[in-house]
Design a binder for these strands. Structure first.
Lengths: 153, 153
DNA sequence: GAGAAGTGGTTAGCTTTGCTAACTAATATG
DNA sequence: CATATTAGTTAGCAAAGCTAACCACTTCTC
């Protein structure tokens, strides 16, 4: 995905498509870069992301977690199993409806996530740090936009 | 990764880390959303990305391609094999140094990529289309920044 | 110029993450 | 009560990533 074109001369037409292309590419490369860091630190991106939701969005059912994370239930089952195995989250049956399982962060999970917060995206943070404030703002806005955009895919 | 916080009240301090967090999260969710589309269309994101480089960055050696795409050589070997299998790229030995292989896009590969350009990220494009022009600009700038940031990870 | 060291790619083999299909258990509905 | 729906799991597959080990060449060094 490399539809480069000097920023000045662009046809009004292809704008969205071009930007989509560039974002796609950037996202791929960004995650590839971060994966190494994540792995090294001990928790893969998907697990980290799931744990984060569990920690911040309180106790949550597996299905809801899958929906939020945009994966299918079986995938989430496995992610949660891995997190449970490492005692980062705990499962419990709902009293009323015995089909549903609630996922809750353990103290260990919360600690790991919160404490490792900076560590976690340290590589990215440190790459971001030297940027201009305006650039950081741009990225911030873009990230928020993208989250909304992604929700609708 | 859900370090939400209302945009108004944020400590100057954690800025880069917070943004890093949010970007990481957005990238994950974005790609998860797109993956389905890509698959449906017949070419996974990594293959698409690699093909794109081959098409736009001309004939390229496998090692260089791996470097550009930020993956290890064995991974790229397999990606290229898949693309070759579908006759989207062709390999050839270097005349001078017989260790290196050059990867070149076939007419079919070029056609597929160029013609399918919009199709490819259509879902993303159509989600982007209704955005304000200013928002598109923000995303465009952000994508360019991220590409640079990703390079350095 | 022959042996050692280095380089480009591939193969083998493992892990993780994603999926669908099929199943179990529990609840809701007619 | 029988049937349909819903939540989650299991089984089994494919893709993409890695490292380690290896081959085939080049290059370097003595």
């Amino acid at each position: 995905m490399t539809g480069q074109r000097s920023p000045g001369s662009r046809p009004r037409r292809a704008r969205a498509g071009e930007v989509a292309d560039r974002i796609h590419s950037a996202a791929i490369h960004l995650l590839r870069g971060l994966r190494r860091q994540d792995d090294k630190w001990g928790l893969s991106a998907p697990r980290l992301s799931a744990l984060s939701v569990v920690v911040f969005a309180g106790p949550i059912t597996l299905g809801e977690l899958a929906r939020v994370e945009q994966v299918r239930p079986p995938t989430m089952t496995r992610l949660v199993q891995a997190l449970e195995w490492e005692r980062l989250v705990a499962r419990s049956r709902d009293a009323g409806d015995k089909r549903v399982t609630w996922i809750k962060a353990t103290a260990r999970g919360r600690r790991l996530l919160l404490k490792g917060r900076k560590e976690r995206v340290r590589a990215l943070t440190s790459r971001l740090a030297p940027l201009e404030r305006a650039e950081i703002d741009t990225l911030d806005k873009a990230a928020r936009l993208l989250e909304v955009v992604a929700r609708g895919l």
